[in-house]
Amino acid sequence: MNEKLYLKLKNEEPLTAAEHLELEQALEAGDQSLVAHYLADQDFVEPSMAWRSSLNEKLREIAPQPVADKGSRFKWLGFGGLVAASAVACAAAVAMVFMKGGDSVEVGSSRQIVAESEPSVSPDGLSGSSDFGSALIAAHQSDTAQVSVGVRSPRSTPRMQNVKLDYNNW
């Protein structure tokens, strides 16, 4: 492992893109020396669940709430009234169609607007261990998680923010 990179990690200095890549490649190649050095030299503390929870709470507080969930009981009543009114209007339209002798009605399609969403917060942490038992348990947990949620784990990739859903080229 590159000594300069190790020292930067130890001193918690920001990494360049090239150093990020080197770190990623070293970990991918199964280089445990960095982790071992790091854990040995640091009083390493994984971000606690309480910390993550408080961060999530803060984010939830400042995040814009979806319109559907903001509504009070009265808004729902208002919405209910609107829908009931729409239903009456629809019923009138249906009745008119029947009266006219059953002409076909063409239903227009509406396009879904895809909104940008904020990236989720997931603090990364080196929770690996040079201990056999912990490493095997972590590997079992990782596979369990993947099967449970129906995904497989490739390597980390940069976030794709502000991209268009140009799915024809996927």
Binding site: D124, G128, A135, R159
Partner: peptide, 14 residues
């Protein structure tokens, strides 16, 4: 976005 904890820490990818 997918996050998986592995023996080498959390991994997030898209």
């Amino acid at each position: 976005s997918i996050t998986i904890r592995s023996e080498r820490g959390n991994r997030t990818f898209e």
